[in-house]
Design a protein around this nucleic acid. Structure first.
Length: 280
DNA sequence: AAGAATGTTACATG
DNA sequence: ACATGTAACATTCT
């Protein structure tokens, strides 16, 4: 659920909440598997006493830089959320990690499905080495995208979801980008024309920027939806063109949007705008 | 009301 | 190299 725009929204909210400069008083881990890099005990001891120096995003990771040059990286996977509450509040059932701060507040990690992971490392480069380019940053040019696409003979949608290829896209924004660029999700990456590559490059950036602009996509009312710090909902759902809009009209040509499976994942397409030609 | 589906990713298997 | 299957888990949808 949280893709680049959602993670960016959370990072922005964490920064607005004045967390940089706070010192950690104590840490409590209530679901051991959340801590991927060590035992919960070791993790708590290593983080206690540290001050947060910066909070940034890379790919779908939230990076808390600590004052000893270690980094706490958090991947929210499907249902991870951060909450900020007064330290005297008792933990709610899905709060798996509680980070008590020096100002009476606690940063709490909430994750109903428990897929999210914390990575504590002093080797940031190694942690990030397998991620592809940041799609909203300068080095991600049309040429770079074209070169990378030509390296593979894979279906374009699973490739876009592969974080080694490009960082930050998930199912929502991949579907939106492919619709915007009028490319069928099963097209082979090395079959795209120059024109299609340009369209895809611009579409990826457009849908992600729009996602950030509207503070992420929140689709329903349920627990397992995207909420930023403080339970804020994202406003991008109203601006989606195809995702979860099966049987509704394509905003471009009014054809009914269909849902197909590509690489085991649901894909939403306009069968008129996104054609799979014989050469693909 | 049981069974299927769910926005992510790592790993295992052809 | 690539596609496919499975598992991690809880909630929501059908």
């Amino acid at each position: 659920m949280p893709e680049l725009p959602e993670v960016q929204t959370i990072v922005d909210d964490l920064n607005r909440a004045d967390l940089v400069g706070r010192t950690v008083i104590a840490v409590k881990v209530r679901w051991a598997k959340t801590i991927a890099t060590s035992s919960p005990d070791a993790f708590c001891k290593q983080v206690a006493g540290r001050t947060i120096v910066s909070i940034q995003r890379r790919a779908k990771l939230i990076l808390f830089e600590l004052d000893n040059n270690w980094v706490l990286a958090v991947h929210l996977r499907m249902t991870g959320r951060f909450q900020l509450e007064r330290s005297n509040m008792s933990p709610t059932p899905h709060q798996h990690v509680i980070i008590r701060l020096d100002d009476g507040r606690s940063l709490r990690y909430n994750d109903t499905r428990k897929f999210g992971r914390f990575y504590l490392t002093d080797d940031k480069n190694n942690l990030l080495s397998n991620y592809g380019p940041e799609p909203l940053e300068k080095p991600f040019t049309v040429t770079v995208l074209a070169r990378r696409l030509a390296r593979y003979h894979r279906q374009i949608k699973p490739l876009l979801l592969d974080q080694r290829f490009v960082a930050g896209l998930g199912n929502i924004y991949a579907d939106e980008a492919l619709w915007t660029a009028r490319i069928h999700p099963m097209r082979r990456s090395d079959s795209l024309s120059e024109k299609e590559i340009k369209a895809l490059h611009s579409a990826i950036r457009k849908v992600l920027r729009q996602g950030v602009q509207y503070a992420g996509t929140t689709l329903g009312r349920g627990q397992s939806n995207f909420y930023s710090l403080g339970g804020t909902r994202g406003g991008n759902a109203n601006h989606l063109k195809v995702f979860r809009r099966t049987n509704l009209p394509c905003p471009r040509c009014q054809t009914s949007i269909s849902r197909i499976i590509v690489g085991q994942r649901s894909s939403h397409i306009c069968g008129n705008c996104q054609i799979l030609n014989a050469r693909a």
